[in-house]
Nucleic acid binder design. Structure first.
Length: 369
DNA sequence: CTTGACTA
DNA sequence: TAGTCAAGG
């Protein structure tokens, strides 16, 4: 698994090549478009000057599951307040700003009723993980503790508020989505307010995002937990136009393919149908209603409603986003005074950004000054 | 995840 | 300079 990352070989890769060896449809793990689409590795620098709409929940959740101590516990200050999300957001955003990338965070709004089942499933998985985590801790199996700890992450309201506070202090705008955050992020790319949407999930593509950036981060190599091997995890881009071109599908058909594979709104998908069969069936039959072999199952799925979720999503009304300056005092007060971050580290990191921004404005003055 | 100190 | 690894809070 995961040998399909770039670093050696061709710049453009087809995940499809390694699909047969790596992929099994065991349980729902998010919309699985990966085997059907081409991703292009990109450098962070290629996004310089661009606005990127970032799925906030997706990103914060990622931080909560990866930024942990040696026994799998979250990072916390002396008062027991979780700081993993703030650490991740702070350093990640500084790196983006150093690259002159303009992040806009998009926060999820109200959840669609059809998603409740999937959320419930994830909640149960977390409860199981908590049990396994405690078990592993008691028995001193630290590698297991770390593994299960990652799966216990819960994003709380206060984490959301704190994240917004930090973003504001950094001069980074955020958008409150009326419904699905992915839908709102996709919308921003359609209106031109954003160049791309950034998320680990492929949903943005079904929501019609022009571009999806995955693995939006600075680091290149990442250690495989437990083993002494490394994999390349570099940012990669999926272009909506390319997806349609290469699959030969319309956007509406792509949504149908997604529904066959399984989305958050029908997580079990259709039995016996994986990405490859799904695309074949839609190409041959045009649309869900015409696929004879799924007639029975289709009657049980609110497919028209799911289509509408993707094709006619509820999106934010005003899509103007305003970028601000870094408010050094506020960042230092919030992170260091309130959350007990090291003042030296935070100040040093802010200095690094300031240097980068100053040198950029100086190089501009050479041309225009 | 990201940094920063340390080693080869 | 690149690679490794512990620590961050």
């Amino acid at each position: 698994m995961d040998q399909l990352t770039a670093g050696q070989g061709s710049r453009v890769k087809k995940a499809l090549n390694s699909y047969n060896f790596t992929h099994k449809k065991t349980q729902y793990m998010g919309l699985d478009l990966k085997p059907l689409i081409t991703t292009v590795p990109i450098k962070l620098a290629e996004l310089s000057g661009k606005v990127v709409a970032i799925d906030a929940f997706n990103t914060i959740y990622q931080f909560l599951s990866t930024i942990r101590g040696p026994t799998g516990e979250l990072l916390m200050n002396g008062r027991g307040e979780v700081t993993s999300h703030l650490s991740g957001l702070f350093y990640r955003n500084i790196n983006l700003l150093v690259e002159n990338i303009k992040p806009v965070y998009v926060f999820d709004g109200k959840m669609h009723a059809l998603k409740a089942q999937e959320i419930e499933r994830r909640f149960k998985l977390k409860q199981e993980a908590v049990v396994q985590y405690n078990h592993a801790l008691e028995e001193g199996r630290m590698e297991d503790a770390v593994k299960y700890g990652k799966r216990t992450s819960v994003l709380t309201d206060s984490m959301v508020e704190e994240s917004k506070t930090l973003l504001t202090a950094l001069g980074i705008p955020y958008v409150q989505a009326p419904a699905d955050g992915e839908a709102a992020a996709a919308h921003l790319t359609k209106t031109g307010a954003a160049y791309a949407s950034a998320s680990q999930d492929y949903d943005s593509i079904l929501f019609g995002a022009k571009r999806l950036v995955r693995n939006l981060a600075a680091s290149g190599r990442r250690k495989v937990p437990g083993k002494s091997t490394y994999i390349d995890v570099e940012p990669e881009m999926v272009e909506h136009d390319n997806v349609l071109k290469e699959t030969g599908l319309t956007h509406e058909q792509l949504v149908d393919v997604g529904i066959l594979i399984g989305t958050d709104f029908n997580p079990s998908g259709f039995s016996g149908i994986g990405p490859k069969t799904a695309i074949k069936l839609i190409k041959e039959n045009g649309r869900l209603e015409n696929v004879d072999k799924i007639k029975g199952q289709l009657a049980e799925v609110p497919y028209q409603e799911i289509r509408d979720i993707f094709l006619k999503p509820e999106v934010p009304k005003a899509d103007g986003v305003r970028f601000g300056e870094v408010n050094r005092e506020r960042v230092l007060d919030f992170l260091c005074v309130q959350k007990s971050f090291s003042t030296d580290r935070v100040a040093g990191t802010l200095d690094k950004l300031q240097k980068a921004q100053e040198s950029r404005s100086q190089s501009l003055e050479k041309w225009f000054g």
